[in-house]
Design a protein around this nucleic acid. Structure first.
Length: 564
RNA sequence: GUCUCCGUAGCUCAGUGGAUUAGAGCGUUUGGUUGCGGUCCAAAAGGUCGCAGGUUCGAAUCCUGCCGGGGACGCCA
């Protein structure tokens, strides 16, 4: 159980006991907040409840706090519980309790940090089903850096949710129909025809080199099979375009799969937008909306009414009869929540989709789905620069920087760390030259170095014939030892916070603080020394630190080096 | 114009449901460690938390307005 949860329970119980005893008046207990004081001398946790309750109780905060402490159940968690003006209750973790936790971490090993223990089969069948849908970039070109931020945020969030006790599914929504795909098919045809020697003007969209190459490959493999002339039948034209669309899709998806895998992002499912139409999910949802009177016709198009007065109507079916992407998205939400029964569906979207958020939530409500089961992690866009000069990012204009290019220069770990370290809702700049130059003093190495250093200590221990067997953790009394234990123990609460707030970037900060606590300890205390008992105890401690570091690095999708 | 995100140290950014004296990394200055790996440790300097009001016992944090920057307002996705 999280320490905060334990404290909350203890405080509530104490208030109730005090009320029963008549030491505090009756009132509804407001939510108990458990905070971490910035100032170490104030203890490990602080509870400001007495301040909140002063008005309700009609008593001075300090008096209330004193009553709570008096009725607080004694536990082995705390060595010190005090009242500080103007009414805080400060709690300090007992050294003896901290010591026990070292053995506990060693026992939990890879599962340390996990909020809900796993069952025997390595999965928890009762766990809530959550889906994280991310990246979902249009398959109209290579995997670009902007989508890289999406990939890193989504993947790390999925890792966090798994550890927080959810059954997680990772999904990529493939926009395999629609205007953009048609344009892509046309552009590919032009490249193919050009490769066959026809003198056609360059396409207006998707001008990138990759399509030229694709056209060349098709020309080589298929010759003039799909080449059209003025005399070609409509059927032949349709066939050629279908072929181009299918080729373009297959090949771009292939590169996207390879490139996401390159940064260690893997999906459980690639969900086809088109399938929503093929399996009639769309028809079902359309009929449901129509029955409910949510649809209206205007200018030959079908619009979805908005339940919100402020919001305007949105087109679901174009006047030419084709559904919009919005139509697909409504069917998709239905598919996730109603058909597949996810308890929670999270989508990771770039800030440019912001306006779309409200519409889809509204649509979900119209379908009697619970809009709270649909969350969106919105991230601000990444501006790419090279030596301060902005680099345009447009697949349509054929102007972009691919993830592969960047990763080849700075490596996967630095790439993931850089994109993960800022909070999703702050826009960030990625300077390619700066990234390359500074990648060697990226904080990720500081964290990995801590892990490698511990591995090195164990190599030394083996040489010296020292082991941690039978080590007595109660010997760990040095301030830097206790500080390290405290920092190790913050992993579970960091995971809980990150999961609750969809804030994967918290991990990077935790990891830096943990590495810092270890390096400081390392400097203060030698591990492998003449004293066998202390050596054994310290080996246990650094193993615990190593476990925490490794588990955090794994959550962030980074490598866990034994040597550097 | 409407909506939304951001504005915190020279730079890049954390800062949870309000809380006691506002943080980290880089950079700068100084000291230490060089025998478990110097990809390390410690200290200092550096901030009127964009501005102005408001709520409160208490505001970087909540509310309102303004200024500055990004994004969105399509029968594109």
């Amino acid at each position: 159980m999280l320490i905060q949860t334990k404290i909350t329970q203890l405080i509530i119980a104490a208030i109730q006991t005090a009320q029963t005893a008549g030491d505090l008046p009756e009132f509804d207990i407001p939510e108990v907040m458990v905070e971490r004081p910035k100032e170490a001398s104030h203890g490990d946790y602080a509870v400001p409840s007495a301040l909140k309750m002063a008005r309700l109780a009609g008593m001075a905060p300090v008096k209330i706090a004193e009553q709570i402490i008096t009725h607080l159940e004694k536990t082995d968690y705390f060595s010190d519980v005090t009242v500080a003006p103007p009414g805080f209750i400060n709690l300090r973790l007992a050294d003896s309790w901290l010591h026990q936790q070292v053995d506990q971490v060693l026992k939990e090993e890879d599962t340390f940090g996990r909020l809900v223990p796993l069952g025997k089969g390595g999965t928890d069948k009762k766990a809530k089903k959550v889906q994280v849908e991310f990246v979902s970039a249009n398959p109209t070109g290579p995997f670009v850096v902007g989508s890289g931020r999406n990939a890193v945020l989504g993947d790390t969030l999925a890792n966090i949710l798994e550890v927080a006790g959810y059954n997680v599914q990772r999904e990529y929504y493939v926009n395999d129909i629609g205007t953009q795909i048609e344009n892509l098919a046309k552009a590919l045809y032009i490249r193919y025809a050009q490769a066959m020697g026809q003198d056609l003007p360059d396409p207006e969209e998707y001008m990138g080199e990759y399509l030229v190459e694709m056209g060349r490959v098709i020309a080589t493999s298929y010759g003039k099979k799909y080449l059209l002339t003025d005399n070609s039948s409509d059927d032949a034209r349709r066939q050629a375009m279908n072929f181009m669309r299918q080729q373009a899709l297959e090949r771009t998806l292939e590169t996207i799969k390879a490139d996401t895998a390159l940064i260690r992002v893997n999906f459980d499912r690639w969900f086809s937008e088109q399938s929503l139409y093929e399996d009639k999910t769309y028809n079902f949802v359309y009929n449901k909306l129509q029955t409910k009177g949510m649809l209206m016709e205007r200018d030959g198009a079908i619009w979805l009414k908005s339940g919100d007065e402020e919001d305007k109507e949105n087109v679901v079916v174009r006047s030419d009869g084709r559904p919009t992407y919005f139509a697909s998205d409504i069917a998709y939400v239905w598919d996730k929540l109603a058909k597949r029964g996810f308890d929670w569906a999270i989508a990771v979207w770039g800030a440019d989709h912001h306006g779309h958020m409200k519409r889809v939530k509204e649509a979900a409500r119209s379908l009697d789905l619970d809009p709270n089961k649909f969350s969106i992690l919105l991230y601000q866009l990444v501006n790419i620069t090279r030596d301060g000069v902005p680099v345009r990012q447009s697949k349509r204009a054929g102007d972009f920087v691919t993830v592969r290019e960047v990763v080849e220069e700075i490596g996967v770990d630095v790439f993931r760390f850089m994109l993960l370290t800022r909070s999703a809702d702050s826009a960030m700049e990625l300077d390619l030259e700066l990234a390359k130059r500074e990648s060697s003093d990226n904080p990720i190495f500081y964290i990995q170095y801590a892990h490698a250093r511990i591995a090195s200590i164990f190599r030394k221990a083996v040489e010296e014939g020292a082991t941690m067997g039978g080590g007595d953790v109660n010997l760990l009394e040095h301030p830097s030892e206790l500080a390290l234990i405290r920092q190790i123990l913050r992993l579970p609460e960091t995971v809980a916070f990150a999961a609750e707030n969809l804030a994967p970037h918290q991990l990077t900060h935790y990891a830096q603080e943990l590495a810092n606590a270890f390096h400081a300890f390392y400097h203060e205390c030698h591990v492998v020394i003449d004293d066998d008992e202390l050596t054994a105890a310290r080996l246990k401690l650094v193993r615990a630190a190593q476990i925490a570091l490794a588990n955090t690095l794994r959550l962030m999708g980074m490598s866990i080096p034994e040597r550097m």
